[in-house]
């Protein structure tokens, strides 16, 4: 799998973008420009998170991986919330938007991961 890491990162980013855009539509984001920011913010955080957690899993094992995953997910929520604060013109708290989007993408991502269909997913 490590030889396919660029493919894994691309796959994770694509899934995250699709899920978070759908979740953003559900919570009331309507403007194209706001969707663009949701996409850009995830392009900024997702590859870093995926590659770092992958590295930690290999270098330090499964326990360290889940600890780092929790820390990095929380960091991602805070960073994305901070960016949304300056970019999204929405009545909802930007940190709440970030929390909702990240929780939904993590949850649905885990579901997809546990129900892999050979040939469709990695």
């Amino acid at each position: 799998m490590i030889d396919k890491i660029p493919r894994v990162m691309l796959y994770c980013l694509t899934c995250t973008l699709v899920i978070e855009c759908a979740a953003a539509a559900v919570i009331g984001i309507r403007k194209i420009k706001d969707f663009l920011f949701v996409i850009l913010v995830n392009v900024m955080t997702n590859p870093v998170l995926v590659s770092l957690t992958f590295f930690i899993r290999l270098a330090y094992g499964r326990t360290a991986y889940y600890c780092s995953l929790a820390a990095l997910e929380i960091a991602a929520v805070l960073i994305e919330g901070a960016v949304y604060k300056f970019t999204l013109k929405n009545r909802i708290n930007p940190f709440l938007i970030s929390l909702i989007l990240n929780t939904s993408s993590f949850f649905i991502g885990e579901l997809i991961n546990k129900t892999k269909i050979p040939g469709v997913f990695l």
Partner: peptide, 24 residues
Amino acid sequence: LLIFCIIGAVLLAVVVLVVIILIV
């Protein structure tokens, strides 16, 4: 390869952040 991917991801994050700042 993994190290290169991490460095690439960090660089990408910086570029995207600059793009977001410019758009704003």
